[in-house]
Design a protein around this nucleic acid. Structure first.
Lengths: 239, 239
DNA sequence: TTATTATAATGGTCTAACCATTATAATACT
DNA sequence: AGTATTATAATGGTTAGACCATTATAATAA
């Protein structure tokens, strides 16, 4: 009949109050909270308790705590860092494997490409082609520019995600990329022939998007990611 | 040429040490850490600093802190709560709207249903049909059992996600549902005719999965979710 | 004008005590 | 003997006040 009574922990109450102030606009991004010694008076709590609350808010990504004069707790713009971190924790605790993440990535990149095919502006295609030209330059220079190529590849995928204008896709893809690169880079083996193959995939994919062919864009994006995944698995097995 | 030098903050070092101990198995889920007064000696730090570290680990979802005798910091099994929470923060800071999340959900449910169609065991279908029967009972009883129907609907979707055997889909869908219900329930308007419509959608979807027709399963899942979204938007506009 | 140095504001850490919660053991009651 | 009550002690939660470390800015010197 009743709900569990509200927790009475002081630091939680402080976390909630500050969080609510951020969400209803009484505190806005960039704004600095009062100094700890002032805040503690305002809440009528000890500094230790206040600091526990601030640590929690920091870990949630809502504030950033800076040292020194002019420092303090600055309200942040919420972004996808915490989602990435949490996904990373799942991976590190072996709840999620490379295969799991790779399979998910194939689907998501497919969907994103399909949406982009139905949704793009001329400006988007221009940006993609500019990135393709940069990628092409890397390919010509071969394996030594592997890292730069991978970085541009990532930019291309994120640019396509931007086209959807849906922050969920952007966040999700961002989190996937973060973690693919943080934990699985070591598996990635690409020399000049693989770079060329990959580059051609990207060109075809961008073409399909430009032509508004969503099914083709989806298929090509999936195939591109699948190839990428295979390079990683290959390398993993060689070990 | 060089990386930023390692942060010297004591509590961060403690967070990392405990986190690493969890990931390489020196600490396992269910295990209780030494009491704060012991831990502080082991790390040779003050209790306040230790507690900041423990708060951070708690917020990361790695430990749970219990009060009283036999309490202490218990190592948790990492789950999707943190991802859900972070997604919730993005929503509350208006970085993500109902439309954004709904669109993403359509795609993900489609994918998950398609995978399930290609991947299910007889046991899975049995469970789904059992849930459908329960849903049917709710429909017969009409709008008063709306909440129960929605709960079963959710269970059906999560069961389908389980069939994929990919924890990423399960986590993502879990996070979506958590937030759809936390923030958007108030928009949901369903009476008996809508419940029937929804129930029929679910039956068709399960049939397609049973028959291994992945494209049909995808299409039906998307349509089902889309209808669901439309009820929400309708209600939102009525306000 | 520029480089150096002092100042003070601010977060980071420490010590030591007491409060609040809770499982368990001791006690009293039937 | 068995059951309800009460005390005990372990554990996290909170407080208070001090000092350390970092850093932007102001004061000073070259």
């Amino acid at each position: 009949m009743f709900q569990t009574a509200k927790q009475t922990k002081v630091f939680q109450d402080v976390v909630e109050q500050i969080q609510e102030a951020i969400f209803d606009g009484r505190l806005t991004a960039g704004q600095t909270l009062p100094a700890e010694r002032e805040l503690k008076e305002m809440f009528n709590i000890s500094r230790g308790t206040l600091r526990e609350a601030l640590r929690v808010l920091e870990q949630k990504g809502l504030i950033e705590i800076k040292l020194g004069v002019g420092g303090g707790s600055v309200v942040r713009t919420v972004d996808t860092d915490q989602i990435s971190e949490s996904l990373g924790l799942l991976i590190r605790s072996q709840k999620v494997s490379l295969n799991h993440l790779a399979q998910f990535r194939e689907d998501v990149e497919g969907i994103v490409a399909a949406h982009a095919a139905k949704n793009h502006a001329a400006e988007d295609i221009r940006k993609l082609k500019y990135l393709l030209a940069k990628a092409h330059a890397c390919v010509r220079k071969g394996g030594s520019h592997r890292n730069m190529f991978i970085d541009i590849d990532k930019q291309i995928h994120m640019t396509i995600a931007q086209i959807t204008a849906n922050p969920v896709y952007i966040s999700v893809l961002h989190s996937i990329h973060d973690n693919i690169h943080r934990y699985y880079d070591r598996f990635l083996s690409m020399q000049k022939p693989e770079l060329e193959e990959n580059y051609n995939d990207l060109c075809d994919m961008v073409d399909a998007i430009e032509n508004g062919d969503d099914e083709m864009a989806r298929k090509l994006a999936q195939q591109h990611v699948k190839r990428f995944n295979q390079y990683m698995k290959k390398r993993e097995e060689e070990k």
